[in-house]
Nucleic acid binder design. Sequence first.
DNA 1: AATGTTATGCTAATAATGAGCATATCTTAA
DNA 2: TTAAGATATGCTCATTATTAGCATAACATT
Lengths: 336, 336
Amino acid sequence: MQNYQNKVSKSEPKVTIDLSAVLVSLSDGIPKVLLIENEKGENVINHRLPFGPFNPNINRTMEESVRKWVLEQTGLRLAFVEQLYTFGDRFRGIINNDDPVIPVSVGYLALISRVTPENLLGSIWLDWYKLFPWEDWRNGQPKILDLIIKPNLMAWIQKTKGHNSRLERRYRVEVAFGFSDFGWDAERVLERYELLYETGLVAESLIDGKIPFPEEDSIYDSTGLPLYQDHRRILATALGRLRSKIRYRPVIFELMPKVFTLFELQKVVEALSGENLHKQNFRRLIETEGLVEQTEMVSEKTGGRPAKLYRFRREVIREKPSPGVRFSRKGSKILN
Amino acid sequence: MQNYQNKVSKSEPKVTIDLSAVLVSLSDGIPKVLLIENEKGENVINHRLPFGPFNPNINRTMEESVRKWVLEQTGLRLAFVEQLYTFGDRFRGIINNDDPVIPVSVGYLALISRVTPENLLGSIWLDWYKLFPWEDWRNGQPKILDLIIKPNLMAWIQKTKGHNSRLERRYRVEVAFGFSDFGWDAERVLERYELLYETGLVAESLIDGKIPFPEEDSIYDSTGLPLYQDHRRILATALGRLRSKIRYRPVIFELMPKVFTLFELQKVVEALSGENLHKQNFRRLIETEGLVEQTEMVSEKTGGRPAKLYRFRREVIREKPSPGVRFSRKGSKILN
DNA sequence: AATGTTATGCTAATAATGAGCATATCTTAA
DNA sequence: TTAAGATATGCTCATTATTAGCATAACATT
């Protein structure tokens, strides 16, 4: 049974597996991500995700290893952890030939119920939308879309010759950025980031040498903070996955305190999805889904009438095939 | 910027990345998976997925590499390919200590529009449900569930001491196998396989040394064909993913010919989901989702009234955020 | 007591879903 | 030639969800 293993392993190149973790939390309605400040250097890029190599001699599973790296680099013990994706074409073919080690990276998503002190190794909790300004529609369509992204994407479409090639680009852009019939689809975070990367609208494109020369320096000031290596791509994957997952698994409660008001819950969902929801319908949704149960307590923190406090109803997991916050996806409006 | 890379790479163990492919197709309403017959040996296990190591010096991306391995081992050129999951704890800690190479495997899913000749290297197309007999509910609840699986799982629950530990096992079993309120959830393929593995109900458990001694040999004859290494686990992941993906992306058409009748389409969906669907509602669903358009042709192959032939409406991708076959999940019945 | 603020209850219109009856159009056997 | 069998297809009705609001409740502050 070992035959295949041995046979195919002969001429192996050295491969390294990096494990990277996206830690998500919230404070004051701001969705946050844990970043670590790079050591000083001549780099433009100052931030990275917690990460480290997978060493199976030390940690039996990759998840164990992720937990270890995160603990070492941030002091945090993770609860909810989920594998995201494995990135095998890091730096898009711009591999440093001096370095015989070719890194593959496996991204993980972890949810943290509240932000922790920022300390070890210069870790900070950064507003997710500082990295993806075009993803936050809670105050209407982000200006950057019409000002910078849309015109540049349109130019990119025109730049190619050939009817089919142009059509293909147009379709990709339309679907990813919602210039099509159905409008903005919050979950397509990765598709959007990939397009911006490809069209040279994020700083990483330059650094990876994809784009020959900065056309307008100012663009990169407004298209979000660039990260080390492909970490922003991993983050985009994480945001997309989280946005879709809250709809069919009760993961949102990993981000909530033990008890909470329905409006607090709504604000968290809105912060993640980047969209505003209809308040009355949201509470009906949550209640009829059986996701929560009342406590006898009320919150004093609200301005007006005190809000009842709820807690997560764990039993819902055995009652429905895919319990989650199934709010509608009919585009973004400013409500209430 | 290279600092981190170098620093962490120092004491790397040798890691191998295997890429495995799950090729799915259909013939005569039977969902099939491509397997390769192992070379002769004293093994019990005779089949494996197409796989091979990722060598970044040869193929820039992992997907490229998967395509190459599949082409070499089966002669097939893949169209639709999607990454599934990365398995880092292969053989569950039973690592052969003579072999310093610890394999991590990245699974891929590919859809093939029709089964191909079975030839190169002894590749065969096998009925998916030969590997997962408990997953096919098209003719009612599979007998194996009540006969073998349920009693063994119940015994496994009782085997542990402590109220909490027992409750936890009970919950896992209930949710995975639908002994809970909502019944069978077709998408939880992996959860079910993992449970069977853990409880020693599939042959791989024995081979990996998880279970000390076969209690009843006959069990393993009925719990499906075991595969090389963790390939059956990869297959379970693939089936679960596919079952969920057809609901929100039009991937089902990757498995269809250019034109087809609505009933043919239904049969394919049923074959994958393992459930029977309501015929009239299915066609209403497909039509109102805008997934198909009529051709002027009709099929002669039907026994009675000739059926109109349809084709996939590609434009649907730009019209809806997540077009797919959103049939209901209200459990399985025998319909029509 | 009036005003502002947030929570919460409720409704009418519309859309989606679940289950099934009825009819249409073919082939094949009597 | 007709009856029987087999599908395909059209349509309905009851039920449940969803959307968009209006309206009221319960607090704090002025």
